[in-house]
Amino acid sequence: MDMQDKDLDQLFRSKLDGLEAEPSAKVWPGIAAELEPAKSKRSLIPFLSVAASVLILVAAGVLFIPQKASINKGGVKTRIVKAVRPSAIVPAVKTTSPQVVSTVDRLVKVAAVQHIASNLGKTAGNRQTFQHADTAVNKVIVDKGAGEPSIAVVSPKSSGTIKAVVPDDNTPLSVKLHDDQPATLGASQGIATTALPVMKKDSVPVNTRRRVHNLGDLVNLVVAKVDKRRDKVIEFTDNDDGGSNITGINLGLIKIKKRE
């Protein structure tokens, strides 16, 4: 009588199905050790995000709060126009795109010329400072009496100095580079600011109504309140896991932005 397949299977099933064996003591520590790193890895990421955020906010505070005019340092192609109007918050335009830069340059030149011209026509005591690293006002010709349009010769310059030729001692014009003074324009001289849509306060896409899901959103919200630029000092984007990743950093000189 041959042993049938079924019988053979049944023999093994009946004897081995309920088999039990005591594992050695090293198995559990092995399991626990494997579970450990996964857990600590998970909890470390939000912690690092907090640390990075704090660090960057502190750095941003140091950079922005004193409102130093000399942010433009050697070798970096960041051009800055600053214009303070009595009623407006200091707008800062930064761009790395050459095309936009040239527009800014032109606007600045126009602004500078008009600024100088109108200053010449005005009375004394209105102290104005204007600074632009790429523009040097070489020559200003003024027809004092007739109120004719004034001419200023402006040429691009690679160094950060601006030479201003003041035609008359009576004209209290000062065009110079200051490290510690905010650049100011007269109330009527809003060209540099108004001509640039980026600088308009209400056009900045600040989405303050977004719901705060996580720490990244909270940081975004706080940064949006303080930093009105298009590229925030730090930007977070939600990731799939419900956490958030840093997708943009803008420290003025250092600017990193992750494409969506």
Partner: peptide, 14 residues
């Protein structure tokens, strides 16, 4: 996790 392991370890080693 350890309690659960102890509960099933010998059966599962089988």
């Amino acid at each position: 996790q350890e309690l659960l392991y102890k509960q099933f370890a010998s059966k599962m080693l089988g």
